[in-house]
Structure formats: C-alpha cells, structure tokens
Simulated scan of single mutants.
Amino acid sequence: MTEYEASRTMAALPELVYDEAADLRTMERWLPRDLHIEPQEPPAVTVSHGAEAERERALVRAEHDQLRVEWGTRDNGHYAGWLQVAGIGAGASEVTVHLSFFDPDTAPPGAQVEAALGQSLDRLADQVEMRADQP
C-alpha cells in the first residue's frame, strides 16, 4: 500500500470549507483536472481519470458532523481517501487530504500524486475564498 497526505491552511470557517469540499455538484472545480465525477444515487458516484479513461464505480460519503469526506473505488479496491477539515481558531481552518493506493501496479507516480494534492488544495482554497467573498 502506498499513502500520501497533504494539508493546507485556509482563511475561512471550517463549515464553509467543508461545504465547498463536500459538494458533489462543484467538487470537480478543485479536484485534479483529469478527474471527473458523475453523482449517482448517494453515496454512489462514477469516476473517470481523463477523457479517454475507463469509468470506475466509487462511493463518496460526507459526514457533516465530523467535517469529513471519504471515498474509494467499489469494485476493485484500488484506492481510497479522505478529506478532513479542522478549525484552528480565528476563523481559519486546516484541510488535510489523505490518499491510499492498495495496488502498487495501479498507483500513479508519487511525484504526480503529491503535485496533484497540492494543486487541488490550492484550487479548493480559491473556491472557498470566492464563496467567502459572496454576500
């Protein structure tokens, strides 16, 4: 198993950050650019990686009371992950994303995963900032 984790501080209340991160309708705005999600009957989703990629059945579970989102593939168990939002005081939050790849043959290169995690957290921070600026 290969695991990756990244964190980022955001200048917003944890509930606002969580609401943006957990919204399946807008999740693609901050996820890696080649990752596409089609919501099905909750908690089911279909995920594809790139335009020509095979679609995979997955699950996404959002736990509002815990400010946590968990996901993973349904049929093949290739990967799973979670996002956790924590308040750190003064209207700020820390967001942590964790990914686990269970099959080393299907895991992307580590540098690619680490870059995607950082870029995704940056895009989430941008989305949260835009949402916080709205009246």
Rank of each mutant, 00 (worst) to 15 (best):
R68A: 09
F102D: 05
T106R: 09
A86W: 01
P108F: 01
R29K: 13
G118V: 06
V85A: 05
I37P: 12
A58Q: 13
V85G: 00
H36A: 15
G50I: 07
T96D: 06
Q84G: 12
P109G: 06
L117F: 01
W71E: 15
P42A: 10
G81R: 01
I37Y: 07
L121T: 02
V47Y: 03
S120M: 03
T26K: 07
S48W: 06
E129L: 09
E56G: 06
L67K: 01
L16M: 08
H98P: 03
R123E: 09
L24A: 10
E56K: 12
L124S: 11
G77E: 11
A92V: 01
V17R: 00
N76W: 07
A44D: 14
E56N: 07
D75I: 12
R61C: 14
T106C: 05
V95H: 02
H64V: 13
L16G: 04
R61E: 11
G91Q: 04
V47G: 06
D126G: 05
M130R: 10
E70I: 06
T106L: 07
E38V: 15
A116G: 04
A115Y: 04
A80H: 10
E41P: 03
P135A: 13
W82P: 12
L83W: 04
A90M: 11
A115P: 08
N76C: 10
T2E: 14
R74T: 15
T9S: 11
L35R: 06
P14H: 00
A11L: 05
